[in-house]
Design a protein around this nucleic acid. Sequence first.
DNA 1: AATAATTTTTAGATTTGTCTAAAAGTTAGA
DNA 2: TCTAACTTTTAGACAAATCTAAAAATTATT
Lengths: 227, 227
Amino acid sequence: MDSGSHNSISPTEENYLKAIFKITAGAGLASTNAIAQEMETSPASVSDMIKRLSRKHLIDYEKWKGVSLTKEGRILAITLIRRHRLWEVFLVEKLHFAWDEVHEIAEQLEHIASEKLIERLDEFLGTPKFDPHGDPIPDAEGIFAKRKQVLLSELNALETGVIVGVHEHSTAFLQYLDRMDLVLGAVLKVQEIFEYDGSMRIELENKTSLVLSSKVSQHLFVQRQKP
Amino acid sequence: MDSGSHNSISPTEENYLKAIFKITAGAGLASTNAIAQEMETSPASVSDMIKRLSRKHLIDYEKWKGVSLTKEGRILAITLIRRHRLWEVFLVEKLHFAWDEVHEIAEQLEHIASEKLIERLDEFLGTPKFDPHGDPIPDAEGIFAKRKQVLLSELNALETGVIVGVHEHSTAFLQYLDRMDLVLGAVLKVQEIFEYDGSMRIELENKTSLVLSSKVSQHLFVQRQKP
DNA sequence: AATAATTTTTAGATTTGTCTAAAAGTTAGA
DNA sequence: TCTAACTTTTAGACAAATCTAAAAATTATT
Ligand SMILES: [Mn+2]
Ligand SMILES: [Mn+2]
Ligand SMILES: [Mn+2]
Ligand SMILES: [Mn+2]
């Protein structure tokens, strides 16, 4: 169950590990301030928590230097991400939640402690490789699926792509995409790119034509389609 | 969301409300000692918690007198029971857990706060009326399904009954029942009752004959079958 | 290099939930 | 009724997680 230290870990500690993983992208250093911002808490609280996580050997830490995850800490963080994304799949696929409604609930569900539960859930869902936002779901060994993807903004005129993920997870963005039928799996063709403001005109399969701001095209992941 | 008081309620507080509901069966008084036993904690801690719950108007309390749930506290307790039992159905029906494995996990899942989640789950499960142990699941208005049931020990010789629930939820008992094929829905006929120790011989549909101790027959709920 | 700005840590409080030990109140027995 | 047994409450401590304010260290600027 508790891979490594027999010390139990609280939901709060788990959230810190996830935050550090996110900041460091798995390896590298996270600053106190960056963690405080990610956790929406004060730097002083982060300093306290850093000591706790360090005592539990979940992070490496030297005063004034920033922190990095230990192997054990990284495994735990990836487990958390696996749980979070599997629950998101469950909420969307089985309970028919919209993709902008699931994050908050998964944020709670990810802390349910039962290895068997998550493996059964994975099986029940058909071992999905990506969550409803297109983010990869690490397998039981912690390996993330990889995929050739680029930002929509990197496509050139006349190129075709399939939407496979979002680079921003805000409710506002997700609801905007829904409204525009820019859902995962949608195929689009870039018609023209306006140098003036970086916006682009695209066409969907049903011939709908849309103009997307550069902010939108920079937050959508697509897979190039060779014609 | 928070029916009534805008004050948030912690998982611990929720567990206390469930304990008080269980002791009082919805109405009546619960003593400090009884709550301490149910919560597996000290009477001193219970005294502290009683003050907190009283301040939040979830229980009525006068020193030295014992506590009772307010309307709001009772609604919350029933909501918890609803969540717990719905999750147990999910774990058994969808994730194929055994009935003796689900309590601990449901004990965690019941604290996930999202009204929409539980209503969607209910729908997904087909609005079940009873959980895997035969306990009634209150509906969204807090109404428990009722059912004519008696303890197996109340049946007379030659009477027939269907197993509909258990009156004890220990792992040992549930696993014993599994081993004996005494599962929910099993039909049995009382063949004879031994006055010596109150044990009874029963026959299952597949003609298996078993002798059950009085301890077993006093912890199994059955529905009488008119022949 | 000296100073200013920023980042990080420490100090001291607070809330929640728990504990043990001791005091206070209630109930039951002789 | 008076004492014994019990239940319940209070007192005082502690760990987790947070906060604000202040001190210390680092980094950037002149
Ligand atoms: Mn999410
Ligand atoms: Mn996601
Ligand atoms: Mn249970
Ligand atoms: Mn149950």
